[in-house]
Design a protein around this nucleic acid. Structure first.
Length: 584
DNA sequence: CGAGTTTGACCCGCGC
DNA sequence: GCGCGGGTCAAACTCG
């Protein structure tokens, strides 16, 4: 058999073979975290492609509609309105990270209205049933919210940690970091790679197992708190780590908190089905007990067996493949993200003179994670890296930041676009957008564009509106900011006003519905992932700080080379090439 | 010689 | 059904 896939050749045992059930969801979701405003045209272009604009438009439309419908409040549509409210609430909560109040809100609204307006028993009964229904919905939403919140928390935590790390590094002179600094933006080269790691995933709501899988795994490691590491040597950066997961920090020297990845990478869309057999099928015996090693293995490629997932998470089912793309300026062919990659292909993408390179994670056999690297057509200094899949193995500390960040982003997207219920993907997007958008900054944008929704993290520029300049985030400040954001009431107005307004809701909903319709393919919603204004900046800064500029592998040792930047300056800035984005 | 890259061919989904 | 384009494979090649 030819199963000798490159993997086999390399060193991967077949056992690790990722078996991807062909049934894997073909859909992809891509999340884009944008950050550059200043990025200028390049960034703008990119966003445009994504369709961010649409998103905003939608918002406006919603508002308008809301105004119009405003008068209708109290009308027979109460119920619907309330429903909307729920949705909105979710958004709010998400932003606020508070959950649990929506119920009351909803109830209040409903009950009061109902009482006032429904006189006949029949009507009352009806109303009640409605309420019940709403409550259920509310629950669902809550779940979603929880998920999102968790992810958000994770991100924050992570960022915080990074920041702290960085800070300590500067001030205290933390011991080594390995990441190379991005020449482009980091003047002080403070990139430090956090040698410590925090487990985030756990934050996930305890009752939301799936959540974890969705988000956390996306990038892999992220999350999960590994119990074992909690005691680490480093002072916990922040304790507010994700809710219950405590942030466990460990000296990262070499240990990696291995997340509990239950991975099931199985899914993996993979369209080239034909080939699958070689890779995964190759392993004849494959039942590799996926065991996740506890510690991080040395730099050499650990051949761990694929972590075993006792429970095949239904992830495949729920999770559409999420794609997270990161835009960063780097002359280096590839940004170092701490992982090891092997190039398995290169192609010229249509519309972009720069070739697109395909990489596969080689840190573990069978790791389904892949990434595409491509330079922007217009701005060759910008490298767009798109990640896909979840690592099924522990990640080195160096890889954690990126991994968790992307994971969180993806997970957010995913959670927002749960196909379940009546929420369609689009709806989810809207929801997310709503939740996040308010802040206007464009660090993170979510695009639900056609083929696959995408999340993009744009690190090309320092955040515009972000109040946290990357240069030197004060940990204290940061914490304060985050805490503030976390406060339930933090920006009530921002959200409350707009979102809560029942009238707007209807508008919103309409928009949401409309989206799917036209968007079937092009509708894209862009949203900032954080409701916290600081968030974007922080996140970007954090990531940026550890993204090495050189392919030489600052930390991970990715040896891949990215497509050489075609010297030709992109004459036409007609399109930006977002790897996960395709223009069809 | 092993590990990784190069590169043309192949597969597959999608739009026309 | 056909062609296009994205994504992957895998033999050949390069490098240390």
């Amino acid at each position: 058999m030819m199963e000798s896939s490159y993997l086999g050749k390399r060193k991967l045992n077949a056992n690790g073979a990722e078996r991807e059930p062909s049934g894997a969801p073909a859909g992809f979701q891509a999340v884009v975290l944008g950050y550059d405003d200043a990025a200028g045209e390049a960034g703008a272009e990119a966003r445009r492609v994504v369709g961010e604009m649409d998103f905003f438009k939608t918002e406006k439309r919603k508002e308008e509609a809301a105004d119009r419908s405003h008068s209708a409040a109290g009308a027979p549509d109460d119920l619907s309105i309330n429903k909307d409210d729920l949705t909105i609430n979710m958004g709010l909560h998400v932003g606020r990270r508070k959950s649990g109040s929506e119920e009351s809100i909803v109830d209040d609204g409903v009950s009061s209205n109902e009482v006032d307006h429904r006189e006949t028993k029949a009507e009352l009964a009806l109303a009640k049933s409605e309420i019940g229904r709403l409550n259920e919905e509310n629950k669902q939403l809550k779940n979603m919210l929880t998920r999102v919140t968790t992810n958000y928390n994770s991100l924050q935590m992570h960022v915080l940690t990074l920041m702290q790390h960085r800070n300590s590094h500067r001030g205290l002179g933390a011991p080594g970091h390995e990441l190379s600094v991005d020449p482009e933006k980091d003047q002080d080269g403070s990139q430090l790679l956090p040698r410590q790691f925090i487990s985030l995933g756990t934050a996930a709501s305890p009752d939301e197992p799936p959540l974890r899988s969705a988000g956390a795994d996306i990038r892999g490691g992220d999350c999960s708190a590994s119990p074992s590491n909690t005691d680490a040597a480093m002072p916990p950066p922040v304790d507010y780590c994700a809710g219950k997961g405590n942030a466990a920090t460990i000296s990262s020297k070499d240990v990696m908190p291995l997340p509990t990845f239950d991975h099931h990478h199985h899914h993996h869309h993979h369209r080239g089905g034909a080939h699958e057999r070689d890779q995964r099928g190759s392993s004849p015996e494959d039942p590799p007990p996926h065991h996740v090693p506890q510690g991080w293995l040395p730099s050499k490629v650990p051949k761990f067996l694929p972590a075993k997932g006792p429970e095949p998470v239904p992830e495949a089912a729920t999770m559409r493949k999420a794609r997270v793309s990161v835009r960063a300026r780097s002359e280096a062919a590839m940004i170092s993200d701490g992982c090891q990659w092997r190039k398995y292909g290169q192609k010229m993408a249509k519309g972009n003179p720069c070739p697109r390179a395909y990489y596969r994670c080689t840190m573990a056999a069978g790791c389904p994670v892949r990434k595409q690297v491509q330079r922007c057509a217009e701005d060759t200094t910008v490298v767009i890296t798109t990640y896909e899949g979840n690592h099924n193995h522990p990640l080195p500390p160096a890889a954690m930041p990126m991994a968790s960040t992307t994971a969180a982003a993806a997970s957010m997207l995913l959670s927002g676009s749960m196909p379940s219920a009546d929420g369609s993907l689009m709806a989810g997007s809207n929801f997310l957008a709503r939740a996040v958008l308010p802040c206007s900054s464009n660090v993170a944008t979510i695009s639900a564009s056609a083929p696959f929704p995408t999340v993009t993290l744009d690190l090309t520029q320092p955040g515009p509106g972000a109040q946290q300049p990357p240069p030197r985030p004060d940990p204290a400040q940061l914490q304060a900011a985050l805490a503030d954001a976390a406060r339930p009431v933090a920006l009530p107005q921002l959200f409350g006003q707009k979102l809560y307004d029942p009238s707007k809701l209807s508008a919103v909903q309409a928009a949401a519905k409309a989206a799917p319709a036209d968007a079937g393919d092009t509708v894209s919603a862009a949203a900032v992932i954080a409701s916290d204004p600081n968030f974007p900046a922080v996140l970007a800064a954090a990531i940026k700080s550890y993204i090495g500029g050189s392919s030489s592998g600052g930390g991970g040792g990715s040896s891949g080379t990215v497509p050489p930047p075609p010297a030709s300056s992109g004459g036409d800035s007609s399109r930006d090439d977002k790897i996960g984005e395709q223009d069809s």
